[in-house]
Amino acid sequence: MDRKLKRWEVALLCGVLAALLWSAWAGQEQAQLAGQVIRLHVLANSDSQADQELKLAVRDRVLERAEGLYPQDATLEQAREVLEDNLDELAAAGQQVVDEAGRDYPVTARLEKCWFPTKEYENFALPAGEYTALRVVIGEGEGQNWWCVAFPPLCLGAATESVEEATAAGLFTEDQAGLMTRENEGYVLKFKSLELLGQLRGLFTGN
């Protein structure tokens, strides 16, 4: 004889179904957003205060140099090509900062796929997930990381664009802009839940 589901069981099933549907939607939105940006991933030599301060100085110099390389009104593909063609120059910009600081750490730069946690910046946030990134490694690269956005130039003092300006230029859709900004109430909490779901998926798949 079939047993009727209790109210709490129905509510639980509905909650699980809603979570799965939201996870699928959020994952798709993250993947689409990841296709519109190039992140910046800077790894410090160590966690010493001097190396962490050096990391920030390298970050600023590399962002500034990268922005100077983009053609006016650059598309994502143009920016990607420029970065790919000028990796040595970007590494040299970071190396100059290290040399000026009297350190002998080597600096390398390359474009690659990297996993990023949820990150909240001053005026926007990005969900956890895999992104194409300009990865800059200082020395041993064993210190805390810095995650930002190399294109569009949205980060820190080197930034010349806002999310709104990038959207107006066609680099983001209105939905993507809403996903990144505080106009979408609770967006960081939702991003954190997406990050947790990804971690749980990794536990079950062994990745």
Results as ranks from 00 to 15, higher is better:
R7D: 15
V10G: 02
L12K: 05
L12Y: 07
L13F: 13
G15W: 05
V16K: 03
V16G: 01
V16A: 12
L17F: 15
L17S: 13
A19C: 11
L20R: 13
A24I: 14
W25P: 00
E29K: 11
E29T: 06
E29S: 10
E29H: 04
E29C: 10
Q30I: 04
A31F: 10
A31G: 06
A31T: 12
L33S: 08
L33G: 09
A34K: 02
G35L: 07
G35N: 08
Q36T: 13
V42L: 05
L43F: 11
A44G: 01
N45A: 07
N45K: 06
S46C: 09
S46R: 06
S46L: 08
D47Q: 12
S48K: 10
Q49P: 02
A50E: 15
A50N: 12
A50F: 15
Q52F: 12
K55W: 02
L56P: 00
A57S: 14
R59T: 15
D60E: 15
R61F: 01
V62D: 03
L63C: 10
R65C: 02
E67V: 04
L69N: 11
D73K: 07
A74D: 12
A74L: 11
T75L: 07
L76T: 05
L76K: 04
E77H: 05
Q78H: 04
Q78D: 06
Q78I: 10
E81C: 06
L83W: 06
L83K: 01
E84P: 00
E84V: 09
D85I: 06
D85Y: 13
L87N: 02
L90R: 08
A91T: 06
A91Q: 07
A92T: 13
A93P: 02
Q95V: 00
Q96S: 08
E100G: 11
A101R: 07
G102N: 09
R103G: 03
Y105N: 01
Y105D: 00
V107G: 03
A109T: 06
A109F: 04
K113S: 13
W115G: 01
F116L: 12
P117W: 09
Y121N: 10
E122M: 15
E122N: 14
P127R: 06
G129Q: 02
Y131W: 09
T132V: 03
L134D: 05
L134W: 04
R135I: 05
R135H: 14
V136P: 00
I138R: 00
G141Y: 10
G143Q: 05
G143L: 01
Q144E: 12
N145L: 11
C148P: 01
F151V: 09
P153N: 15
L154E: 04
C155N: 06
G157R: 10
A159E: 05
T160Q: 04
E161L: 15
V163D: 02
V163M: 04
A166W: 03
A168F: 07
A169K: 13
G170V: 05
L171I: 03
T173E: 03
E174H: 08
Q176C: 00
G178Y: 10
L179P: 11
M180W: 11
R182C: 05
Y187R: 15
L189D: 03
S193G: 00
S193C: 08
S193W: 11
S193V: 12
E195V: 10
E195W: 13
L196R: 12
R201C: 03
R201Q: 04
R201G: 09
L203M: 14
F204Y: 14
